[in-house]
């Protein structure tokens, strides 16, 4: 194999992986801390993508400016949803296991609601726009500048997030809540706010990922579920609840996808699901899990 050939596999893998990592980190916060396996995660990605598309094509708003608007808006929506819906479920659930089941089911409902509102607003058409799609030569292979920018943004956000969780006071409260909500509550952490914050941050990250996706791929109102599933696979791969695990898991899955696509394109999704199902059977705690 030549170096160019390897680059042609590795770089697309990393480009895809960056996106996967970003998507999965949001879900990891929502499941790892707030204990909500959020099946509507992809719908926030879709909202971010379609809003960016609308702002760009109708008003000529730069996608990065759109990002600055969509991210916080999605955060607020997510925060509000947790404050109303999930907080109530949390109070009425007799045990954490019951909450995990019922919150997952509620997120199915949310998935249908958001997806169909989007279908009513945007219709089912597949859309796209062209931004930064200039070819860039990397070691003899050509890649779109928009994809490279996506990878860069994903890494920057991932790192920022990691630092936020490791260093800040809020980050410490989040980690405490992830380990033992009851004890964290006793230590003076306002547990409901932390959980809502995590759900909101997850939604915000999803929306940012959606904006990046809209720069590289066609977008439409029912695109969400595909990304929800990818996020779930990555989160399980990296270890449920481990944010660094999700980050690494995203890149790993991207690379696997890229390698399998080179060998037999029809089997990429089969490989994803095979990994997912086998992992759940053999090591459900994932790569970075205990």
């Amino acid at each position: 194999m030549t170096t160019v050939r390897i680059l042609e596999i590795v770089i697309p893998g990393l480009l895809l992986g960056g996106l996967y990592a970003l998507i999965a980190m949001g879900l990891s916060l929502q499941y790892g801390v707030a204990r909500i396996l959020n099946f509507s995660h992809g719908e926030f990605i879709m909202l971010g993508a379609l809003t960016t598309w609308t702002l760009f094509t109708a008003l000529g708003v730069n996608p990065f400016l759109a990002l600055a608007m969509c991210g916080p808006a999605a955060f607020v929506i997510g925060f509000f949803i947790h404050r109303t819906l999930y907080k109530r479920l949390l109070i009425s659930s007799p045990s954490p296991a019951v909450f995990e089941s019922s919150s997952m089911l509620a997120s199915f409902g949310l998935m249908f609601v958001i997806q169909n509102i989007a279908l009513l607003a945007w219709g089912p058409e597949i859309r796209g726009y062209s931004y930064l799609s200039i070819p860039v030569n990397l070691g003899g292979a050509l890649f779109g500048a928009n994809r490279l920018v996506t990878l860069g943004v994903a890494i920057v956000i991932g790192m920022t997030f990691y630092l936020f969780i490791s260093l800040t006071r809020t980050g410490k409260a989040i980690r405490a809540a992830a380990q033992d909500p009851a004890a964290a509550g006793l230590m003076g952490v306002n547990i409901n706010s932390v959980l809502a914050l995590c759900f909101g941050l997850g939604a915000g990250l999803a929306s940012v990922a959606g904006m990046l996706i809209s720069m590289c791929y066609p977008v439409h109102a029912v695109m969400g579920r595909e990304y929800t599933i990818i996020a779930i696979i990555v989160v399980v791969l990296g270890g449920l609840g481990s944010i660094p695990g999700s980050f690494i898991g995203g890149f790993l899955l991207g690379l696997i996808g890229s390698i399998v696509t080179q060998i037999e394109p029809g089997l990429a999704l089969v490989a994803y699901y095979a990994i997912f199902v086998l992992l759940l059977l053999i090591k459900p705690t994932g790569l970075m899990g205990k």
């Binding site: 396996l37 296991a97 995990e100 089941s101 997952m104 599933i229 779930i232 696979i233 399980v236 037999e264 029809g266 089997l267 999704l269 089969v270 699901y273 095979a274 997912f276 199902v277 759940l280 059977l281 459900p284």
Partner: peptide
């Protein structure tokens, strides 16, 4: 597999069969 892991597994199984069959 307990609780939510069982739900995730059964969900993944359907998709695995679907895409394998498609291929």
């Amino acid at each position: 597999l307990k609780g939510i892991y069982f739900a995730m597994f059964t969900f993944g199984l359907v998709e695995l069969i679907k895409y394998f069959l498609l291929w």
